[in-house]
Design a protein around this nucleic acid. Structure first.
Lengths: 178, 178
DNA sequence: GCCTTTGAGGAACGGTCGTTCTTGACCGAT
DNA sequence: ATCGGTCAAGAACGACCGTTCCTCAAAGGC
């Protein structure tokens, strides 16, 4: 019954994740979403309830379809060096982390539900870095996750030249000795 | 000549830095600034020209009065461990980095002038971490700056428990061996 | 005294925000 | 063929956005 949808919900969420990964939550307007997502205003509110609902859907999508594969690559890597390389050295330069990064830096402090999602994702990253062997409490895995985020920030801000790659390699070299 | 000002410009910039450090650029409104800064709308535009002008002034103030002292503490520390502790372990938990952090993550990609300021500040942090001895190209200093930002993100997002302190110590321990 | 200059006070601007309403097209079921 | 229900299309909502304007108060120079 009813008229069939003229848009692909998964595709809409995917594109929304792309927009929210590039600009702050308040920096992305409904008009812009409607324009770039291929979904009508009315359908957007019918499907996601509100701008925040769409944002949460986009964040969840990103965690599942972008961050999780990245975590798998880290986990399957031989060590921190390969892990960081696998996470940041891909074709996208680590852009898969952008929505998580912005959510953690900007949205989590103001939205408890975002904070919960962020907490889970960062914990998963920690355990991926700590994978070979049970983690000793407060190991360097948390710091590696932090370094991952920080290095991605530098690339995003246009701050990082070739030094970033070198820094990553140098850090990884140090960590590999242990 | 003319009527004397009823507000302290430095104080206004300081408070603006506090507001912009807690929320995204678009998340802070002029009404909110006028309310919390103790300056009239008219005087704000007369003094800073625009919201962006006030933001840039606040960012510059933060870099000079918050980040620079932090850099000095890092530089005077005995090594990366003490440096990270000095930067993040203070009474504010590293809040001095917040405006720089948000500027790098959210504003720099959209505002070249912000990107320039961010680039300079991060380079200064790099050189502080690399202080003891001339830096070999692509040393781990850049990664330490990245880790500093990433660890602060975790604290801000409500994600970090006691693990963060432990992670910082563990990373620092590794780095101190070299 | 007055005049000029600058800041304070607050209303008001056009535009855009997130959200909702109204209308009509489309589809499966009856 | 008609009906019930879902979606598309777009106008419209009140609220708020960043910014400007107008008017009055307060100081220094003549």
């Amino acid at each position: 019954m009813g008229r069939p949808r003229g848009f692909d919900e998964a595709e809409v969420v995917r594109r929304a994740a792309g927009l929210f990964a590039g600009r702050s939550y308040d920096g992305v307007s409904i008009d812009e979403l409607v324009t770039h997502l291929g979904v009508h205003r009315n359908s957007l509110y019918k499907t996601f309830g509100s701008k925040r609902g769409l944002y949460l859907a986009a964040l969840r999508w990103s965690l599942e379809h972008e961050v999780t594969p990245l975590i798998e690559r880290i986990r399957e890597a031989g060590g921190p060096a390969e892990g960081l390389d696998g996470a940041l050295g891909g074709a996208d330069g680590g852009a898969a982390l952008d929505l998580l990064l912005l959510a953690a830096a900007e949205r989590a402090p103001a939205d408890p539900e975002v904070a919960t999602l962020v907490t889970g994702a960062l914990a998963a990253l920690d355990s991926a870095f700590a994978a070979p062997g049970p983690t000793e409490g407060g190991g360097p895995a948390g710091a590696l996750t932090a370094a991952l985020l920080g290095l991605r920030i530098r690339v995003r801000s246009g701050t990082a030249g070739a030094e970033t790659t070198g820094s990553r390699a140098a850090l990884a070299r140090l960590l590999d000795r242990h």
